[in-house]
């Protein structure tokens, strides 16, 4: 558990920096692209034309980064346990029932996200088989690697919250049992 949390925060640190780099790239390239086009149309600058031609991969790159940022963001949100949910029970339950219920939802989340990991890997393998290419002849599966990657991290985080919920239930039971000495508790 302790190790898992360490791995988790190491990944999170990398993910945060990826977001910063990718978002900056998206802003910069979109901004430059539009500026060049404005220069070209209104001032007819030859330089703008040449640069635009050499930057024709930038728009597909930016679109691809939307996918990366979205999935990395979703993975980090899982870590904060802040995914959007219709939590009709959340405000009703409290204490031990709440812990048990969060165990159930974490378990179901883990199951579905593991299923998605498997399915997405299968999809990427078919992309490799068909040798699909993106801009600049980048293999499609590399561009789309973020999907199984982020889903794996999402699974890891659901696993951690599953263990946390288990822990909590254990603790709840523990606290209510008078025979156990408190000293051995960590």
């Amino acid at each position: 558990m302790h190790y898992l949390k360490k791995i988790d925060s190491a990944f999170a640190a990398v993910e945060k920096w990826l977001i910063v780099v990718f978002l900056s790239t998206m802003i910069t390239f979109t901004f430059i692209h539009v500026c060049l086009r404005i220069f070209l149309i209104n001032l007819n600058l030859d330089l703008a034309q040449i640069l635009l031609k050499h930057l024709d991969w930038s728009q597909p790159l930016v679109r691809l980064l939307v996918l990366w940022v979205a999935f990395i963001g979703a993975s980090l949100v899982t870590r904060d346990n802040k995914h959007i949910r219709i939590d009709l029970l959340g405000s009703v339950l409290d204490g031990a029932p709440k812990s048990i219920w969060s165990l159930v939802t974490s378990g179901a989340s883990l199951a579905i996200s593991l299923f998605l990991v498997k399915a997405s890997i299968g999809y990427l393998i078919s992309e490799i088989a068909y040798n699909d290419l993106l801009f600049l002849r980048i293999p499609a599966w590399i561009g789309h690697l973020v999907v199984p990657g982020a889903l794996m991290l999402i699974s890891l985080r659901f696993f951690i919250s599953l263990m946390t919920a288990l822990d909590k239930i254990g603790n709840d039971v523990f606290r209510h049992s008078p025979t156990q000495p408190t000293a051995t508790r960590k």
Binding site: L52, K53, Q59
Partner: peptide
């Protein structure tokens, strides 16, 4: 490119 235009995509 042959027509000497940079199109708006």
């Amino acid at each position: 490119s042959a027509l000497g235009v940079t199109p708006i995509t």
